[in-house]
Amino acid sequence: MIATIKFEDDEVQVDAAIIGMGLGVDPSVVQPLIREGKIASRHERGEGADAGRLRLTFFLGNRRFQVIVDDAGRIIRRSAVDFGDRALPRALQRPSG
């Protein structure tokens, strides 16, 4: 089975395998961590030269995982940052509120 990203009714559905791999956790714990509020996320739609792309960002502790996809859900780029025992720099933190 191939891990996927799908768009449905203005919602983005990301396979737990993609999130788990990016954050360094087993896919089976992704949903429970989301429900507990330990994994947070945000998404941003591209504009201008990035129109038709979407940046999805996931946060878990001092880890941040980003994936950029096209409008068909194909992954264009992915990046992960794990700061270990150091605090996640303010510039990489999710917005509060």
Rank of each mutant, 00 (worst) to 15 (best):
I2E: 07
I5N: 00
I5Y: 09
K6A: 15
D9A: 11
D9Y: 15
D9C: 14
D9S: 10
D10S: 08
D10P: 01
D10Q: 05
D10I: 04
D10E: 15
V12S: 03
V12K: 08
Q13V: 13
V14K: 04
V14Q: 05
D15T: 06
D15I: 02
D15F: 01
D15N: 02
A17M: 11
I18Y: 01
I18L: 05
I18E: 11
I19F: 09
G20I: 09
G22A: 05
V25I: 09
D26E: 11
D26L: 02
P27S: 14
P27M: 13
S28P: 08
S28N: 12
V30P: 01
V30T: 02
Q31I: 10
Q31D: 12
Q31E: 09
Q31P: 11
P32H: 07
P32S: 12
L33S: 01
L33R: 09
I34R: 08
E36C: 04
G37F: 03
G37N: 04
G37K: 02
G37H: 09
K38E: 08
K38N: 05
I39W: 13
I39R: 06
I39L: 09
A40Q: 08
A40R: 15
A40E: 06
R42C: 02
E44L: 10
R45A: 13
G46L: 00
E47G: 10
G48D: 02
A49Y: 00
A49G: 14
D50G: 08
A51Y: 00
G52R: 13
G52P: 01
L54Q: 02
R55L: 03
R55D: 01
R55F: 11
L56G: 04
L56K: 14
L56P: 00
L56T: 07
F59T: 15
F59D: 07
F59C: 03
L60R: 07
G61F: 00
N62M: 06
R63L: 04
R64K: 14
Q66W: 10
Q66L: 12
Q66N: 12
V67W: 13
V67P: 11
V67N: 02
D70S: 06
D71T: 12
D71C: 14
D71S: 06
D71P: 01
A72L: 15
G73A: 03
R74Q: 07
I75K: 01
I75A: 06
I75M: 06
I75W: 06
I76N: 03
R77V: 06
R77D: 03
R78V: 12
S79Y: 08
A80S: 06
A80M: 05
A80G: 05
V81M: 07
G84F: 02
D85Y: 00
D85Q: 03
R86L: 12
A87M: 11
L88Q: 11
P89T: 09
P89S: 12
R90L: 10
L92T: 10
L92F: 04
Q93P: 11
R94T: 10
R94V: 14
P95D: 09
S96F: 07
S96Q: 13
S96C: 11
